[in-house]
Design a protein around this nucleic acid. Structure first.
Ligand SMILES: [Mn+2]
Ligand SMILES: [Mn+2]
Ligand SMILES: [Zn+2]
Ligand SMILES: [Zn+2]
Lengths: 142, 142
DNA sequence: AATCTACATTATAATTATTCTAAACTATTG
DNA sequence: CAATAGTTTAGAATAATTATAATGTAGATT
């Protein structure tokens, strides 16, 4: 979804009613310079700060899943405790900082194309994604 | 953990008391030709079938985490609904069949080494793993 | 502008995975 | 064989997520 777009119109085009809550969620999620990663809890906090009225947790779940289904959010699996979502919906790679639990997008050219030499009969490849786990480089861990 | 090994001794070496439950879990998990992927629920079912007495769910969780901490099991994140574990504890890549939710290990030579051109300052790379999502190749999806 | 209606939001309950608790049990040691 | 420290257990607690059903509202119809 495009930054600074008219979210009311965008939602209509998707066949989603532009309710107050959905428009606010669009602003919080998509009206920014860069894509980012979040949990449902992060998102609820962000909305609560920007919005005066409160929003129901159920609505946040419903709307996140609606946006995911429409292809404007992507779920990322790095941790089985809770769901992480990404406003960057392209196929892309991640660094995962095991110290801070932070997820960082890999740039287009940070990783060379991955060469897959095996194929599963009758199946086609939908995505190839790399997860690079990093942690602090302490030599002084004697 | 090595197939057909004396699990009582192996557990002792790890500093884990070789209780009936732990020995049975070793047999179910490690006394087989090939490594495999499982959820806690899968494992409880497998144990229940092989074992006459019942085992507590808490014990299965405790023991899986004990084995994970000792490096004999590895947690795999592909789905945020539940935890998947792998008796193959090496750094390796996976195919994930989106039709069947099946996780398949990549062989040593199925994917060329991944070339990472970026580094995060102050962090070292702990692992690089590829997830290849596949699904049925239906041309007849008109 | 008032009314209608399908869809959305909400509070709350239900469900599911996982972890905690504290009492009963058992492998090991002396 | 008793003592002890670690383990198992049932069940309660917690946390994330989903379901329910009553209430609200966007957009259409009058
Ligand atoms: Mn989902
Ligand atoms: Mn774990
Ligand atoms: Zn990302
Ligand atoms: Zn594997």
């Amino acid at each position: 979804m495009v930054k600074n777009s008219n979210f009311v119109e965008k939602l209509r085009e998707l066949g989603l009613r532009p309710t107050r809550q959905r428009v606010k969620m669009c602003e919080v999620l998509f009206n920014r310079e860069h894509t980012f990663h979040f949990t449902i809890n992060d998102l609820v906090k962000m909305i609560s700060e920007e919005l005066n009225e409160k929003i129901s947790l159920a609505t946040v779940y419903n709307t996140v899943h609606a946006f995911e289904k429409k292809g404007y959010l992507k779920e990322i699996s790095i941790n089985s405790d809770k769901s992480y979502f990404d406003t960057n919906t392209s196929i892309h790679h991640h660094f995962y900082d095991e110290d801070t639990n932070e997820l960082i997008d890999c740039g287009e050219n940070d990783i060379d194309p991955v060469n897959i030499k095996k194929n599963i009969t009758g199946k086609k490849i939908n995505s190839v994604e790399v997860l690079v786990k990093v942690a602090s480089d302490n030599q002084n861990q004697k």
